[in-house]
Amino acid sequence: MPRTTRLQDLIRELRHHTGPIGGPELAERLGITLRTLYQDVAALRAVGVEVVNAPGQGYVLPPDVVLPPAALAEPAPREPAELTFYTNPLSRGGIVHWMLEELGVPYRTVTLEYGAAMKSPDYLALNPMGKVPAIRHGDVVVTEAAAICAYLADAFPEAGLAPPPAARGDYYRWLFFAAGPLEAALSLNTLGVQPTAEQQRQLGCGDYWTVIETLAGALEGRRHIAGTAFSAADVYVGSHLGWGMYFGTIPRRPEFEAYWAGLKDRPARARCEAFVEQALSPLA
Score class of each variant (00 low, 15 high):
230 F>E: 00
223 R>I: 03
202 Q>C: 12
209 W>Q: 04
200 Q>F: 13
223 R>H: 11
234 D>P: 13
228 T>C: 09
229 A>C: 14
204 G>F: 15
211 V>T: 02
198 E>K: 12
194 Q>N: 11
216 A>P: 08
221 G>N: 05
210 T>F: 15
230 F>Y: 13
216 A>W: 09
217 G>S: 12
225 I>Q: 02
239 S>I: 03
206 G>N: 06
233 A>G: 04
233 A>V: 02
228 T>G: 08
237 V>R: 02
228 T>D: 12
210 T>M: 09
231 S>M: 11
230 F>K: 00
213 E>Q: 14
217 G>N: 08
196 T>W: 07
225 I>L: 10
235 V>K: 04
234 D>I: 06
212 I>T: 01
200 Q>T: 07
213 E>N: 14
199 Q>K: 13
230 F>L: 10
231 S>C: 12
222 R>E: 01
213 E>H: 15
230 F>M: 01
216 A>M: 10
228 T>L: 12
202 Q>W: 15
216 A>I: 09
223 R>Q: 12
197 A>L: 08
226 A>I: 04
231 S>I: 07
205 C>W: 10
227 G>L: 02
197 A>Q: 10
208 Y>R: 03
225 I>R: 08
226 A>E: 01
236 Y>L: 12
228 T>W: 14
234 D>V: 06
234 D>E: 03
215 L>A: 06
204 G>H: 10
236 Y>F: 15
209 W>D: 00
195 P>T: 00
234 D>A: 06
226 A>Q: 05
224 H>P: 13
236 Y>Q: 01
201 R>T: 03
231 S>D: 02
214 T>Q: 11
211 V>L: 09
199 Q>F: 09
216 A>G: 07
237 V>D: 01
238 G>Q: 04
227 G>P: 07
236 Y>N: 01
208 Y>L: 03
212 I>L: 11
222 R>A: 03
220 E>S: 12
205 C>E: 00
222 R>T: 01
228 T>F: 14
221 G>W: 04
229 A>W: 11
199 Q>S: 10
233 A>W: 03
209 W>K: 02
215 L>F: 07
203 L>D: 01
